[in-house]
Design a binder for these strands. Structure first.
Lengths: 339, 339
DNA sequence: GAAAGCGTATTTATCGGTAAAGTTCAGGGC
DNA sequence: GCCCTGAACTTTACCGATAAATACGCTTTC
């Protein structure tokens, strides 16, 4: 049976001290390139794998971190339609957690009652990353259990917790601006309902761009609807039925844009010929729409990574709630065209 | 600021040694009831939480056997396009793991080398659920570390590990049968490359249905291509260019169908008027295609749950590899029509 | 009465690392 | 030649817990 390979074995093999090896492992300065290379090779040859437990301990386990585990809570409401969304957040969080040497446990939550699920051993977790649509009560309950929480949620507005969210206003501004630059002046808005914080902000960004351009922000050209393809279709239909001339629409969410496509087709409007559409979020399905949807891309992996960062900050040194914003980027595809 | 409470503080407070406290923590004999009680109380008062990392280390490091934790490994190759797919598997796995009272840690893997990532503390995990596209070498490496593995992967064929996969043959048969029942006789096949086990099986199911119906299985009507929208488009284009009359196509994967739509439109073929298409997998995007894609739905949550089941079996009693199949279900949408 | 047994509790070494404080040695400025 | 500097390492001291070995009273046993 293969001897357990530890940092010590590596050190002996290379004729250096344990510390030298440790330094290489952590990419720290103080080791010559040749030695570094030699150690790296030996590590590979012996198939050495650092013992995370020991690492944490040595690194000053005293620092808050009890289990070295963060929890990722996913509320079920989003599990079906939103997994391409949260999957990315999760990927980013996982990757970053690994970099930081902490673990990440995943917990699907079905029942959105205010009580945290028994199955989640919060006590054993250093912090919680909550995605989806947690109730305020849930957050409160968690807080009482004194586990730091960071929320990645598009919908709960004035939550008393740290959060990581998209830079909605700016991005909505950019999206609307894009339409304006294409020459559109009659631009509609299709958004989620106003209790949704993201929806509010995106609407604000839209209005900002309109006003700046000296364009009329007509409430008749704005519709607030369910944040879903169905809602989008209904909303778009209503927008069309109102009869106000309109050559472009900013949809504050790709799922809405999905529905808007259907409504537009149904009304015999071609995209982008008769109607340009810009979305928001860049979820997977819109890449395959024809014409492909121009939309605001949010780097969801970055969202996850930032959330983990913040969580670690909270764990090591308690601070007051902070809301982090991740910038968006307009992705030009085929659903928009000059007037 | 609250002093770090360690076993040491407890010991001092009680005027005993660290070991005594340790023994109490582990419910081991060798401590008088009175002392035990006293220590217990102090632990409660000081709100002491044992440091897991240190515990594992001290316990002999390597032997982490019963951590009550399963690991979910996701290979990056799928992270972008496949998250709506694996997200569901993950959700199902998480839910079921919670029911069984075991934890689930998530690990995104970027580098698909044969070496398991350092960040995954396999030693501490009771079993591994691997999704995405692991290399055979990876599975081997894992196996050597003696952690039970269950693979949920569409592509690696003769892997020496337990796996949970769709009932490809039967479902492909059903899908093809559906086309036949609509009156189609000239049915093309668009599939992934043959080193992909799922692709093989789906192709087999297709041929089975054709032969049973006494229809000619013409190799000229089959194309094997990259399992991606791009591959699908190219494949479909080729199929069309070959010039064999064809009124329907069975795409052995929704991503292929996605591309097929584009190719069909490009060629001026209407769906399902000129060409009926059936897909496989029921990924999220295809719900929003117009016309919505008729496809085979796989209950991915069930896949995840079954995988966890199997993993638990392996952990408690090692058994020979078993391959579990999850049935699919044909979802009728709008991409198919009678001839 | 000395050796042995036994429940308790304490030392001490260790787990696999990490960090901070030495140590060595080559080179550079003056 | 002298002192200083800094890179490249090594020593040493833990991190927080565990296990094995040891010590300490006190009762039993021959």
């Amino acid at each position: 049976m293969a001897q357990k390979v530890g940092i010590k074995q590596i050190a002996e093999q290379c004729g250096v001290s344990k510390t030298a090896v440790s330094m290489v492992l952590n990419n720290r300065a103080g080791v010559s390139d040749s030695t570094r290379e030699r150690i790296r090779r030996t590590i590979g040859e012996l198939g050495y794998r650092p013992n995370q437990a020991a690492r944490r301990l040595g690194r000053g386990g005293t620092t808050g971190s009890k289990s070295g585990m963060l929890g990722f809570l996913a509320f079920d409401r989003w599990a079906d339609s939103g997994h391409s969304y949260y999957g990315q957040v999760l990927a980013g969080a996982s990757l970053h957690a690994q970099e930081l040497g902490v673990g990440l446990t995943y917990h699907q939550v079905i029942d959105p009652t205010d009580a945290p699920p028994d199955s989640v051993d919060i006590e054993a977790l250093d912090g919680l990353l909550v995605t989806g649509k947690p109730t305020l009560g849930f957050i409160e309950a968690m807080r009482k259990r004194s586990a730091p929480i960071v929320v990645v949620s598009p919908s709960t507005p004035h939550i008393q917790a740290d959060s990581v969210r998209p830079e909605n206003i700016e991005s909505a501004w950019v999206a609307t601006r894009h339409l304006i630059e294409l020459g559109h002046t009659q631009i509609g808005y299709l958004g989620g309902q106003s209790f949704n914080a993201d929806a509010q902000e995106r609407h604000f960004g839209y209005r900002l761009a309109m006003q700046e351009a000296g364009l009329e922000v007509d409430d008749d050209r704005s519709v607030f609807t369910d944040f879903s393809p169905e809602g989008g279709e209904q909303g778009m239909r209503e927008l069309i039925e109102r009869g106000h001339p309109m050559t472009a629409v900013f949809a504050g969410g790709d799922y809405l844009a999905l529905g808007a496509y259907d409504a537009a087709h149904h009304a015999g409007l071609s995209i982008p010929g008769d109607l340009s559409i810009v979305g928001f979020d860049d979820i997977e399905p819109v890449r395959y729409l024809r014409p492909a949807l121009t939309t605001v891309h949010i780097d969801l992996r970055a969202v996850g990574a930032r959330a983990v960062d913040r969580l670690m900050q909270l764990i090591t040194a308690d601070q007051s709630p902070l809301r982090i914003r991740v910038p968006g980027e307009l992705v030009l595809r085929d659903s928009t065209a000059p007037v």
